[in-house]
Design a protein around this nucleic acid. Structure first.
Lengths: 231, 231
DNA sequence: GCCTAGATTTCGATA
DNA sequence: TATCGAAGTCTAGGC
């Protein structure tokens, strides 16, 4: 890993063209040759970058470039396509190299999969008398998150999202269309379950006869913990 | 901007919980207090981070922590929610601070908007005799990219994407449903236009009677240049 | 300010 | 290897 702080201008060409005027920025060169151009703000996304696999070449500036104060020209060329990043370095304020080694990596916990597991275990959140048929019920266009039966024995297809938005309702609609063609299952009701459901999604779901259920993740996790302690 | 290279362990808690074991990493502290934890690989996305607005506090380690080699504890607390990043610093290899000032920002060119403009100018790409009605034709659920008439005078609603995927077809379907309720427009045909159309999107479009058109951006831009030179 | 759609999205799982 | 869905997505544009 090499970190350079320098005044520079940057040009990217590839899927689009983009230009950064001359200013002082942080340049990060990773071991795989990828380059990140960061300013002192924004978010974690760099102003400009080149993803691996790519190759960094450092060259002398042309006379023309040198006349405008360019000290070096970095060309970062993607190995598999025409994406190219050109960094024209004017003044270098700092230049550090360090060997970081391979990172042991991130350990994550608690996403949509967890919601699905918890809801499968606590299926009566959908209403008393509900029975789980199975998780990840396979269909031709992909698996339905949860398939259950309500107290009357009617099949219920559940789509789970962390944030319920309009495309989640569309997805569930496609599943319902398909499932309702199966005479062994039909009629199948739809339930859209999420920690948070956007108003537009709620309206669309209502319009299609799909029930919305807001999931309380902390409460579900709490019950899960209590259950776990019983064993 | 402050750049620290140090061996550290990192814990994030918020929308999920995540942990990074002890390793040497690059820590970037931006002027707004946001923190990025980078390893020597991956892409531009940090291993872990805290977005602004947030607050960084540096504290002495507890006795317990000190015994395991912790030299300092950084706590980065988001200002508006419970998200928190805790960085336990073991050994500092480098620590640089520099004032970058405000970045003049990125100048972009050539995205979906450009495709829309070009297609509006070269509407006969849809077929000879097509006439542009208008770009960004407003509907209750949002603007349709392009509304045109074909050689027979039939209305055509065009949805434009850089990459045509299934949700683009869904979007166009919703527009068509709405537009076909308007007696002044109906019947309205649908055209899904993109630089690249994914197979699943193509199948769904076919199933709904929507025509797919692949756009050659370079060719369209070339014609545009030629046109420009004529004036 | 909230909400929606796009992104040089990135990233991971799966067929 | 392509494809598809999720992301602590982020970000810009409307309303």
């Amino acid at each position: 890993m090499r970190v350079v702080i320098a005044s520079c201008s940057v040009d990217y060409s590839g899927r689009l063209n983009a230009h950064l005027p001359l200013a002082t920025r942080l340049l990060m060169v990773k071991a795989d040759g990828s380059v990140l151009v960061h300013s002192d703000g924004g978010s974690y996304k760099p102003l400009n970058w080149m993803s691996p696999p790519c190759r960094l070449d450092v060259a002398e500036p042309s006379e023309e470039e040198a006349a405008t104060g360019v000290d070096a020209v970095w060309t970062v060329q993607h190995t598999k396509n025409d994406d190219r990043l050109v960094v024209r370095i004017h003044e270098v304020l700092a230049d550090h190299s360090v060997d970081l080694g391979v990172d042991p990596g991130l350990v994550k916990d608690g996403v949509e999969a967890h919601l699905q597991k918890l809801l499968a275990e606590q299926i009566d959140i959908l209403g008393p008398g509900h029975q789980l048929m199975r998780r990840e019920y396979p269909t031709a266009i992909g698996p339905v998150d949860i398939l259950a039966r309500d107290e009357d024995g009617t099949a219920v297809a559940v789509e789970i999202k962390r944030r319920g938005e309009i495309d989640g309702v569309e997805q569930l609609t496609r599943y319902l269309e398909l499932l309702n063609r199966d005479p062994l299952l039909a009629p199948v009701r739809g339930v859209f379950a999420a920690q948070e459901i956007k108003p537009q999604a709620r309206v669309l779901a209502g319009d299609r006869g799909i029930r919305c259920v807001v999931l309380d993740y902390d409460a579900m996790r709490g019950i899960d913990d209590v259950d776990s302690r019983l064993f």
